[in-house]
Simulated assay, not measured.
Amino acid sequence: MAYIIGIGGVSRSGKSTVAKKLRDELAPMKVFTLDMDNYVLPENDIPKINGHPNWEVPESIDYGRILTILDTNELIYDVVIVEGILAFANKELNKRFDLTVLMEISRATYLDRRQLETRWGKDPDWYLEYVWEAHLEHGQYNEADVILSGETPIDKHDVIPIIQKIRATPS
């Protein structure tokens, strides 16, 4: 059975970077990373805010599919990492995590990084504010086992405590 890690935090906080560092540092263990961005419902099925798809609410994610993928991959891999802005917004998924990591950044850092984001074009200012507020409502996790700062670049030393916890767990 795989060791399952949940990594959450606001957009641009370093979730994917931490997941990649963990994968690299855990070699030769078999690691599967589940990026929740790949499990967003079709745009027509997502709630809207001001006519804009509302990617920031739990109703935008296909948690059933994520749980099914998790069921399959926890039998194949040593470690499964689930990362996304809404990683902690589903009680069933939270029950599956052996370890939770919350990435924290300041509002100012979030705004600076999001304003540089080009993948989806320029977001309106109201939406950038909304994403932060939605994170405070749906993305926080007061019970996180590890809280990492995403304010500065993540390096392998930041993930050592996580790796030690994984390796100390009997398989």
Rank of each mutant, 00 (worst) to 15 (best):
R12A: 14
D98Y: 12
I61E: 01
K30H: 12
E56R: 03
P28H: 01
G51E: 09
I66K: 05
S106P: 14
I61K: 11
I61C: 07
P42S: 12
D71G: 02
L22Y: 06
A89Y: 00
P53A: 14
I66C: 04
V40N: 09
P28V: 01
T100A: 03
T68Y: 13
E74N: 07
L22A: 02
V18W: 07
P47E: 00
A87K: 12
G64Y: 11
K20G: 09
L70M: 03
D45G: 02
P53Q: 10
A27Y: 04
V101P: 09
N44T: 15
D71Q: 04
K21E: 05
F32D: 05
I69F: 09
G14E: 00
L41M: 13
S106D: 08
P47D: 04
V79S: 10
E92R: 10
G51Q: 08
T33Y: 11
F97P: 06
A27W: 02
L102H: 14
R96Y: 01
Y39G: 07
I85T: 07
W55P: 05
V40P: 06
L93F: 04
K30W: 03
R65H: 02
A108S: 15
E25I: 04
K20D: 09
R65D: 03
K21L: 12
V31A: 05
D35S: 13
N73I: 10
I85R: 05
